[in-house]
Design a protein around this nucleic acid. Sequence first.
RNA 1: UCCUCGGUAGCUCAAUGGUAGAGCAUUCGGCUGUUAACCGAAGGGUUGUAGGUUCGAAUCCUACCCGGGGAGCCA
Length: 475
Amino acid sequence: MARCDGTAQAAPACAGTARGRDHGTSDPRSTSDTRQTGGLMIPRVRVADIGRYEGQAVQIAGWLYNLRSSGKICFPQVRDGSGIIQCVAVKSALPEELFDTLKHLTQESSLMIQGKVRAEARAAGGFELDVESATIVQRVPEAAPYPITPKDHGIDFLMDHRHLWLRSRRQHAALIVRHEVVKGIRDYFDSNGFVLVDAPIFTPAACEGTSTLFELDYFEDEKVYLTQSGQLYGEATAAAFGKTYCFGPVFRAEKSKTRRHLTEFWMVEPEMAFADLEDVKRVGEELIRFVITRVLENRKEELKVLERDVTKLEAACAPFHRMSYDEAVVKLKAKGSEIQWGTDFGNTDETLLTDDLDRPVMVDRYPAAVKAFYFAPAPERADCALGVDFIAPEGYGEIIGGGQRIHDLDLLLKRLEEHQLPREAFEWYLDLRKYGSVPHAGFGMGVERFVAWMCGLEHVRETTAFPRMLYRTRP
RNA sequence: UCCUCGGUAGCUCAAUGGUAGAGCAUUCGGCUGUUAACCGAAGGGUUGUAGGUUCGAAUCCUACCCGGGGAGCCA
């Protein structure tokens, strides 16, 4: 049972800090609309910025997060998306009607409040707003109160109310961390010579042929599928631009119902021409360390809300562990696993492999038989593929999978045949081996698993606003 | 697909075969510093659905529906 985060202590307002600005990042929590309101020359400010207005009259616009009252004084907590601030309404200082309205206001009613900003040591965010006037925009009726009350709720109920649950403090924090992760990923690639070239979402056939695909009716009896990876297209764009990445949703019709699975998730997939397995390992490690550093620098408050042990993330910034599949099998057997050489790791194996590590491990040179058709064989050992998986610590599992692709036409044709894949569907892909074929490599990183790891979440469903899962497609 | 756990008030749960309860939410009352505020009172139930066993079923049995966790597969 997750404790409800519907209501909790007041805002990480942390006003006046320069958080997020060193990188020139756009911070969704720090831009105040400074327009004048109602001809009264009172600035409308966001809660995150309120510390800059100490001693001044301001207006905030938001929703009632929680309310406590004590006879002749009441404390409406207002959230506005940038933070939460406690307001103070004193009966003797306000028109009776206004005080009564506030005292009996219902949770999540929308309102605008004008008042004076005051530093307050007792407030979690360091500031309070002394109410001078208020406008209720929409009052939530008592007959149908806001369902997510400030107590415990079950996951089924919360997921049914996901559209409202997003307003809760922990969910809000997790999605802000996701925002930072996505921004960090893009900044990393954009500043390292990669060009964003997105892959299509409707695809004519399997990219890998292994996982189940979602099938759709296209026009004139044609079937198309929702993409499960943009990789094959990435190989084409890498030959056009040198280094590219695609970043978008992918779909897996696997009937997986675990804390690590969604049927729709976001994946970033870089692809590099004139590159090999070692480049994948280098870029993947740089990317992860870059993004972790960003999150640690810019999202301290959110990590605090999420009660994330940041020392674990700091430790993960050290150089990653590296081992071959052969070495991993030896280690697993020594730890009691039943694993046999030639089979892929299950989740229990992944956890076993990393439970004594404080940072990700890169496992490379898997048996070719368990990898997709396009993996290049190791030159010194043809039964091993030049693929690598990055396995995160703390049981978060595989967060990156990738490797070097076959660039030899004849070998690729042989592999298509071995995997019983129809050559016609891959003609365009084979062209890439006919016209200036070069060694090339790339990988995919699943955003939700990465965000779950950053946030220390139990389940990937809380890392995306509206998760799509085996038995849940609403709201 | 398989294994496993669950479904009782708006929410979270209790009640192990004998009168269906508590906390929160809602309403009313009290309180000038509350931090998931607190105190008092009230309203609120076809126990997931359909059968069955029994004098008697939330409780035991069968089927189905819905959901949680996991396996396989995967990021």
